[in-house]
């Protein structure tokens, strides 16, 4: 079974254009830690076109947290702002990207429900 984090990035890989990110440009790197190891996801956004890689390159924005915490944030058991205020998540650089990314997370009811409720007319897909 895939984790919510993997589900989130797998979904992003499959979507090439995300209207919600239309105004966004830049790269955001997720450094997710599991014990001594950490995994990296690099999300590149260009006028709403997105691509995902596992590169450990420099980015405009960094988000650092335990993988387990990010799983909980992905399903809506916790929130980016709450975690930031508690000191268990770091966000550096262009924080507007973080605010936008949070809106792509699946939430309590998963991605299927989000798909069904994408924007009016011009769809989310």
């Amino acid at each position: 079974m895939t984790s919510p984090t993997e589900e989130f990035f797998d979904d992003l890989v499959q979507r090439t254009h995300i209207p919600l990110l239309k105004r966004a440009n830049g790269t955001i790197r997720f450094d997710l830690m599991q014990g001594a190891c950490s995994e990296h996801w690099l999300l590149s956004i260009s006028d709403g076109d997105v691509s995902v890689s596992r590169d450990m390159t420099e980015a405009d924005c960094y988000l650092r947290a335990d993988r387990e915490l990010f799983d909980r944030i992905a399903v809506g058991d916790d929130y980016v702002l709450s975690a930031l205020l508690r000191g268990v998540l770091a966000a550096d650089g262009d924080l507007e990207l973080v605010v936008l990314i949070e809106r792509l997370l699946p939430g309590p009811q998963g991605l299927g429900q989000r798909r069904a409720t994408a924007g009016i007319g011009g769809s989310d897909e």
């Binding site: 809506g76 809106r103 792509l104 939430g107 309590p108 409720t117 924007g119």
Partner: peptide, 14 residues
């Protein structure tokens, strides 16, 4: 910061 999902705790909707 527009709502993007159904989350009862925050009374959030898309």
């Amino acid at each position: 910061r527009q709502g993007s999902r159904v989350d009862d705790f925050r009374d959030e909707d898309p």
